[in-house]
Design a protein around this nucleic acid. Structure first.
Length: 481
RNA sequence: GACCCCGUCGUCCAGCGGUCCAGGACUCCGGCCUUUCAAGCCGGCAACGCGGGUUCGAAUCCCGUCGGGGUCACCA
């Protein structure tokens, strides 16, 4: 049996990491078993924007979550944008009315509001039970008179809808909890429930994998599907992503957009891996898995049922692991834009060489690509800017002056300028003055790199070049003297 | 408030009736390495929410309770 799943974001915001995980799980589930479809649930014209729509596609591609059918790649089911299928939803709504599954509702906002308040106060379900529904003749009369009204689905009560959710098991809802929900607004635009269900049916979706926030909407979708005379999909509701404080992940917890992680220097494979591991385990105490390994082992039945806290710290660790696994050239290629961003300009040819030489050294200590720029700033910036804390801590030491000026004179006499010779020279200088490497090298580091935290010193000196190195040492020696 | 879902270290995940005085990862704390910072390696702290059952035996099954989350729009 071939499977058909979809990811259907609304372009009313950037692709959220939670959405990214949902897309990933859909993709993993369908891998090798069927099709992964990307659809745009853009019925909310007021809140949808082109920018968000573009961001979703771009973020999906950046993550490497390719789709088999849908937006931009096309497919046999016509448009994959709901905004282009409006007539179809109206048509279905009319059919449902004709078949007695739905009706034009003339209940006023006030009536509904009052009903809900009263129900709530009495400790009953606030779901609208259709009590203000008019008889067919009256409805026809009002419609004929030119009045407009939304179409509501007529939920049968008493009744119950239950389904077997792949991750949650048997779930059931009493129809007293399901309201006569609007499927078509008075302006004949479809609501989410209608559009989404119609598309799932029309596109032959076999499995709906989505967030748990939609769990209580599922009976509506099932009722609609049945009323349309279609075979219902199998549902799987994923646990929600939470912020560190245990509430639904939102902007106030930090970054939620996939693109924010991209610009913060995260690797897509790391983010994907982390997202996968959040509510699922590849087993065998393993955590680092590639997309293809995930696809091989992924089973919806193994997805966790409890919500997961999104922990950036662990993501950072994982990103560091992925960065270190990159080939040297790959690392250079991927981090270049961050270096140039940090610098505010492009690197020239010589700088590219220095960058390539230094790259392996920063690669093993970076958790994000965004850290690469600041770590190499000393190498490319015209003048060093000294970190006050480092200066305070190191240059105020008694041996600072001696170390810097001795290094300056000894290095000036050095015939060759390579890390090895530099190291030999500086170590003999250290011996001469009876200084430990710890005490003696730090002032030199700060003088040259501007900070007590830097890539390895000797290589830094080599790549910075004789002239600039000596210049910086001399400048600092003068300041200290 | 009603309904639904969930409940193992601070966090994520493993465990699916005995092999668990509970395992892995991140964080944190030590140590080693070391020119700084990282990385790496070694070690440590740290959990089955609570109460009843069922059973020879429960983290694992049942009930209750408490706690957390979600949904209750002519938004998706």
């Amino acid at each position: 049996m071939t499977v058909r799943v979809r990811f259907a974001p609304s372009p009313t915001g950037y692709l959220h990491v939670g959405g990214g995980r949902t897309a990933l799980y859909n993709r993993l589930f369908s891998q090798g078993r069927g099709a992964f479809i990307l659809r745009s649930d853009d019925t909310d014209q007021a809140r949808s924007t082109r920018e968000f729509a573009d961001d979703i596609l771009e973020s999906m591609r950046w993550l490497g979550l390719t789709w088999d059918e849908g937006i931009e790649v096309g497919g046999p089911h016509g448009s994959y944008r709901q905004s282009e299928r409006i007539e179809r939803y109206g048509e279905v709504a009319d059919q449902l009315v004709a078949a007695g599954h739905a009706y034009h509702s003339f209940a006023t906002a006030e009536q509904l509001d009052e009903f809900r308040k009263a129900a709530q106060a009495a400790g009953r379900s606030p779901a609208y039970d259709g009590r203000f529904r008019l008889d067919d003749d009256e409805i026809a009369r009002r419609l004929a008179a030119g009045e407009t009204a939304p179409i509501r689905f007529a939920v049968n009560r008493p009744g119950e809808t239950s389904f077997d959710d792949i991750v949650r098991g048997e779930v059931s809802f009493d129809h007293a909890q399901v309201d006569d929900f609007v499927i078509l607004r008075s302006d004949r635009s479809p609501t989410y429930h209608l559009a989404s269900t119609v598309d799932d049916v029309d596109f032959g979706i076999t499995h709906v994998i989505r967030g748990e926030d939609l769990l209580s909407s599922t009976p509506k979708h099932l009722l609609l599907t049945k009323a349309m005379g279609a075979e219902p999909a199998v549902y799987a509701h994923l646990p929600l992503l939470l912020g560190p404080d245990g509430t639904k992940l939102s902007k106030r917890h930090g970054h939620t957009a996939v693109n924010a992680y991209r610009s913060a220097g995260f690797l897509p494979e790391a983010l994907l891996n982390y997202l996968a591991i959040l509510s699922w385990s590849p087993g065998e105490d393993e955590e680092l898995v590639s997309l293809s390994e995930m696809a091989e082992r992924f089973r919806l039945e193994d997805v966790s049922r409890s919500p997961a806290v999104f922990d950036v710290t662990k993501l950072e660790w994982m990103n560091g692991v992925y960065i270190r696994e990159l080939g040297a050239a790959e690392f250079v290629a991927r981090s270049l834009e961050f270096v140039e961003d940090d610098l505010g300009r492009d690197l020239d040819e010589d700088e590219m060489k220095a960058f390539a030489g230094m790259a392996p050294l920063v690669q093993e200590r970076a958790k994000t690509l965004a850290e690469v720029g600041p770590q190499l700033r000393f190498l490319f910036a015209a003048s060093v800017s000294y970190d006050p804390t480092s200066w305070e801590k190191v240059m105020m030491q008694p041996e600072a002056m001696t170390a810097v000026s001795a290094a300056c004179t000894r290095l000036a006499e050095l015939p060759a300028w390579d890390a090895e010779s530099i190291e030999t020279t500086l170590r003999s200088m250290l011996d001469e003055h009876g200084m430990s490497a710890r005490k003696g090298l730090q002032p030199i580091r700060v003088a040259v790199c501007g900070s007590a935290i830097s890539p390895p010193l000797f290589e830094s000196l080599e790549l910075l070049g004789r002239e600039r190195s000596l210049q910086r040492l001399a400048d600092v020696a003068q300041q200290l003297g």
